[in-house]
Nucleic acid binder design. Structure first.
Lengths: 150, 150
DNA sequence: CTAGGTGCAAAAGGTTTGCGGTTAA
DNA sequence: TTAACCGCAAACCTTTTGCACCTAG
């Protein structure tokens, strides 16, 4: 089987990340990660499941969810949520943002160079931005206080 | 019943927005909007339903979803999606962003002044940002071309 | 050896749909 | 008057859970 992605290289990275997080390396985790690397079109869990079954017919939906969660925990995969639809998964490891099309509901990666002094976002040609929203993540004041307290 | 929000003023705005969008003014739409204005804590549809029932016991879940969709369409309410949980609704009409706490999973509004030359985001004290992502919305190149074509 | 991971099937959670009756304009 | 809207209940889609078996370390 031909692969567009240097999967052996990715496998090493997965192995290292799992070890660092105290998790085991399994065939299913490698395979799900491979599926995400092979076609970076932001598939839903259901879509990942169907693609994964091609080469691993016995894999279960529950395992796909488990593997996806594991990969997110390791920092190898990002969850992408939009409207009320299913969560989608993204293995683009470069820092990037997303563009959602109001018309076809497609999701597109928008790259930028985070190392630049003034990180500039280059919007590719033809994308018409109507609105944008920044989602920050971290620890809120109350939870920070609680953690310091205990 | 005392209200913290000048609901009559909001009612006028709702009426105007509905008319402009060619939609009807109904008691349910007003009431759901009132619920969102009264406590801006990003409730889910289920939570809106429960609060709405206090004053309007016969309102149904389907109607709550319909009203929420209508309010989003009118531009009076924003949907907020995060992780795999239920969609939450936000009636903060000022341009703003959101902060998600990794610990308690709470959602907080992060305001900014969009009229400023260099729109600066002031992160309130005590919020520790671990990561952020920008979600752009609009029309993708393919859909833009298709619309021009037809 | 054994804690952690998997597969299965059932349940839970969230959202949508179809339809007969009601209402704003 | 009538197209739009509502309430109800069933269906649908997505995600989680419990448990018996399996396996990486």
């Amino acid at each position: 089987m031909k692969r567009k992605v240097p999967i052996d290289f990715a496998e090493e990275r997965l192995n290292e990340r799992l070890a660092r997080t105290g998790l085991r390396f399994t065939a299913q985790r490698r395979h799900v990660y491979g599926v995400l690397l092979e076609k970076k079109d932001h598939p839903s869990a259901e879509e990942v499941f169907m693609r994964a079954k091609d080469d691993m017919p016995d894999i279960s939906m529950a395992t796909v969810y488990n593997c996806l969660d594991t990969l997110v925990k390791c920092g190898l995969v990002k969850q992408v949520n939009h409207d009320r639809g299913a969560t989608r998964y993204c293995s683009n490891m470069r820092e990037h943002h997303h563009f959602y099309c109001d018309e076809c509901h497609g999701t597109f990666d928008i790259d930028y160079d985070p190392s630049a002094e003034e990180p500039e976002i280059h919007m590719p040609d033809g994308f018409h931005v109507r609105a944008y929203e920044i989602a920050f993540r971290g620890i809120c004041p109350d939870c920070a206080a609680r953690k310091r307290g205990k």
